[in-house]
Computed example of a mutant assay.
Amino acid sequence: MVKVSTYFLMSLGAFGFWQSMDKLHVWIALHQDEKQERLEKAMEIKRVRAELLQQAKEKDTLA
């Protein structure tokens, strides 16, 4: 009886550990995706800003 209950508890513990690691893995992946999206938005903003500055310089030289 002790062996059966020990096996059951170890199996339940392993299952709980596996589920928590799975949730942790998903959380890390989502966090990395959000970080990548923020970096992409920042790069897009820098690109547009540089483009607008270039257009402003061209207008100033023409005027």
Results as ranks from 00 to 15, higher is better:
1 M>T: 13
3 K>Y: 03
3 K>R: 12
3 K>L: 02
3 K>S: 06
3 K>F: 00
3 K>W: 01
3 K>E: 06
3 K>M: 03
3 K>N: 08
4 V>H: 15
4 V>F: 13
4 V>K: 15
5 S>M: 12
6 T>Q: 10
6 T>F: 03
6 T>A: 08
6 T>P: 01
7 Y>K: 15
7 Y>A: 15
7 Y>G: 09
7 Y>P: 04
7 Y>T: 13
8 F>L: 12
9 L>C: 03
9 L>I: 00
9 L>R: 00
10 M>K: 11
10 M>R: 10
10 M>H: 09
11 S>M: 06
11 S>A: 13
12 L>C: 02
12 L>F: 01
12 L>P: 00
12 L>M: 04
13 G>K: 03
13 G>W: 00
13 G>F: 02
13 G>T: 02
14 A>K: 05
14 A>Q: 05
14 A>V: 05
15 F>M: 06
16 G>F: 00
17 F>Y: 07
17 F>W: 06
18 W>E: 07
18 W>V: 06
19 Q>G: 04
19 Q>A: 09
19 Q>F: 02
19 Q>Y: 04
19 Q>M: 04
20 S>K: 03
21 M>Y: 06
21 M>R: 07
22 D>V: 00
22 D>A: 06
22 D>P: 00
23 K>W: 12
23 K>F: 08
23 K>A: 10
23 K>V: 05
24 L>H: 12
25 H>F: 11
25 H>A: 13
25 H>C: 08
26 V>K: 09
26 V>I: 10
26 V>M: 05
27 W>D: 12
27 W>S: 12
28 I>S: 05
28 I>K: 09
28 I>G: 03
29 A>S: 13
29 A>N: 12
29 A>I: 05
29 A>L: 08
30 L>F: 13
30 L>M: 13
30 L>S: 14
30 L>C: 11
31 H>M: 11
31 H>G: 15
31 H>S: 15
31 H>C: 12
31 H>W: 14
31 H>T: 15
32 Q>S: 07
32 Q>W: 05
32 Q>N: 10
34 E>A: 06
35 K>M: 04
35 K>H: 08
36 Q>T: 10
37 E>V: 06
38 R>S: 09
38 R>A: 09
38 R>W: 05
40 E>S: 12
40 E>F: 08
41 K>A: 14
41 K>F: 10
41 K>V: 09
42 A>P: 02
42 A>M: 09
42 A>Y: 10
43 M>N: 15
43 M>K: 15
43 M>P: 04
44 E>Q: 15
44 E>K: 13
45 I>H: 12
45 I>P: 01
45 I>M: 09
46 K>D: 15
46 K>Q: 15
47 R>L: 04
47 R>K: 10
48 V>R: 03
48 V>M: 00
48 V>Q: 03
49 R>A: 06
49 R>G: 03
49 R>T: 08
50 A>S: 14
50 A>D: 14
51 E>T: 05
52 L>S: 05
52 L>P: 00
53 L>K: 11
53 L>H: 11
54 Q>Y: 09
54 Q>W: 08
54 Q>D: 13
54 Q>S: 13
55 Q>I: 02
55 Q>S: 07
56 A>Y: 04
57 K>L: 06
57 K>F: 05
58 E>K: 02
59 K>A: 07
60 D>G: 11
60 D>A: 15
61 T>E: 14
62 L>V: 01
62 L>I: 00
62 L>Q: 03
62 L>M: 01
